[in-house]
């Protein structure tokens, strides 16, 4: 990720005589970081209020104020814990639009759990994309994990059914379900996910333990729509933010947290299997400002 605000000292000196231009410039930089207009305005209003009331004349302190406002937003509904029930298997459903990094995220999650000594099963419910199963199989082999898959174009619900049954029979701790990418506006494909969700609750007598939406951090304002519509159909339990090693500032996360309150649980930052970590609001914000 790259720095959200460049050179606040320089801006301060440049616009010494015109406060308004200084704030305008800050606003632009935040919008350029994919923070929505509304969220940007909200943050800056709060910062201005504090800056004026405390008579702050130090640009670096203003930066600190912005930073703490962002942390405040990111810590709304703070919850990075993954829900693992006492009675195995835990069932995690991974969803998202095309190309966000669902399959890689499944592999990274699997690797993380395996390190914790958990028995993991991969469920290849993306029966649509060419070679999606092969990609997941590759990870299953690499990590030495069980995998359940069916033929291409078969019913993903059936794959999920078999996966959970196999997991029960083999004493698996966690089932990770990889699904096909889909646009949030595709009615039929969203219905398919609802059906998968039903299959899961039918098998384990509770809702899926985690329903995680994978969001590409280079996405712009459309990410809001993604969270909104996936959440409406599925009741998400969290978000996985991928590709934070890109040049994007990932500001969309701040907007998502501010508008929709769905917790960000995990972030990924590279192509290696262990490039996944729990989301930490303070660390994330530090990155935005370092």
């Amino acid at each position: 990720m790259q720095k959200l605000i460049r050179n606040i000292n320089y801006l301060w000196n440049k616009f010494k005589n015109d406060n308004r231009l200084f704030w305008d410039e800050l606003e632009e930089q935040m919008i350029a970081g994919d923070i929505s207009i509304d969220t940007t305005a909200m943050i800056l209003d709060e910062v201005k209020k504090n800056a004026y009331s405390e008579n702050i004349n130090d640009p670096e302190r203003i930066e600190t104020l912005i930073k703490s406002e962002i942390i405040k937003i990111l810590e709304i509904n703070k919850n990075t814990e993954l829900n693992i029930p006492h009675e195995p298997p835990a069932v995690f459903l991974i969803v998202g639009v095309n190309g966000t990094g669902k399959t890689s995220s499944v592999a990274k999650l699997a690797s993380m759990f395996k390190k914790d000594g958990k028995k993991v099963l991969l469920s290849a419910a993306d029966t649509y994309r060419a070679a999606a199963v092969e990609q997941l199989q590759h990870y299953a082999e690499k990590l030495n994990l069980d995998i359940v898959y069916h033929q291409k174009f078969s019913d993903p619900g059936a794959v999920v059914y078999d996966s959970i049954e196999k997991a029960k029979a083999k004493g698996i701790d966690i089932v990770l379900i990889d699904t096909a990418g889909r646009m949030q506006t595709s009615h039929n494909l969203m219905e398919e996910l609802k059906k998968i969700k039903k299959v899961i609750s039918g098998r384990i007598n509770r809702d899926a333990d985690e329903i995680l939406l994978v969001i590409d951090s280079t996405t712009g304002q459309n990410a809001k729509k993604q969270v909104e519509l996936f959440n409406k159909s599925l009741n998400l339990t969290g978000i996985i933010l991928t590709k934070t090693d890109s040049t994007s500032k990932g500001g969309i996360v701040i907007t998502i947290k501010n508008d929709l309150k769905v917790p960000v649980k995990l972030i990924t930052s590279g192509e290696k299997l262990d490039d996944m970590s729990y989301f930490d609001a303070v660390k994330f914000t530090d990155l935005l400002f370092s």
Binding site: A32, D216, T218, A223, S248
Partner: peptide, 9 residues
């Protein structure tokens, strides 16, 4: 280029 890309596009 993904049309959903944000300001970074």
């Amino acid at each position: 280029l993904d049309a959903m890309t944000g300001q970074e596009a």
